[in-house]
Design a protein around this nucleic acid. Sequence first.
DNA 1: CTTGATGTAACCATTTTGGTTACATCGATG
DNA 2: CATCGATGTAACCAAAATGGTTACATCAAG
Lengths: 147, 147
Amino acid sequence: MESDVSANSRLTIAAHTLTWIGLYQRRGHEVATSEQIATSVNTNPVVIRRLLGELRKAGLADSRRGAGAGWMLARDLAAITLLDVYQAIEPGPVFALHRATPDPECVVGHGIGPAMTAVYDDVEAALRRELAKTTLEDVLRDVLKAA
Amino acid sequence: MESDVSANSRLTIAAHTLTWIGLYQRRGHEVATSEQIATSVNTNPVVIRRLLGELRKAGLADSRRGAGAGWMLARDLAAITLLDVYQAIEPGPVFALHRATPDPECVVGHGIGPAMTAVYDDVEAALRRELAKTTLEDVLRDVLKAA
DNA sequence: CTTGATGTAACCATTTTGGTTACATCGATG
DNA sequence: CATCGATGTAACCAAAATGGTTACATCAAG
């Protein structure tokens, strides 16, 4: 009945991944492998590689192939906000309009779309503003504080 | 690959439904039927009844059975914010933590949960603050303006 | 040319959302 | 008091999103 456990963990996993690489590099290592990260995240390495592929496309991560291959940050943790991460992996909006277009003959059916779009735009803007406040450096600081 | 068309339309449908009832009542009708609303929303009446059931539980709508049955608002449109609607139908958070608990032996795996929870709490708060700014009266005004 | 890791396709399981059918129940009204 | 139109709900089903898994081609340093 109850117990909603839906929602995306993608942002969580992405932040975890990048923070892990950042700390690992800070400890003197050149690159991190998807397998190491997957162990910390407790998932499959392919899931990490897929995610890092998107983060690389957004200019947040980089990879090296061949022997001694692995992943590294493209920018310092302090230069990456959660908004950057969010935008790299969550292209879809939080709220959607109707799945099937409502009755255009009805006043409400006709005007509700634009009306809600305006609200949703503001909501997304607020969400982004909030995510922009936190950098991965902040996240790492919190993580280390909890240890 | 691309083309994310996910997200919930539940808030949209709920706002549409309540606004429709509000306008219908304002035009002199006592109650609205789930079938009438479903026609405007372009979905199945059962979907509307299910949703209205949740909205009634939250004290936003009411229903009458027997002959002359139907739905009515429990409060005026001006006294219902989108946050009220959201809370009535969206119990789950926007973002989730890890599906499987990360490695507790790892510093990051251990501390990332609380760190992200703090951020997500702020994000949800911002989202709610934004939704609270708009009442269904505002929505109706926008809808009629567009007509 | 061996080796370890990336890059990616393909497939499957699970969960969520919404649509649909079916039917019991209610209650005003004739 | 029987009728009738609508609610209230259970039970399924379909589609989409998310993650997990296997498999394998590719790369580049040694």
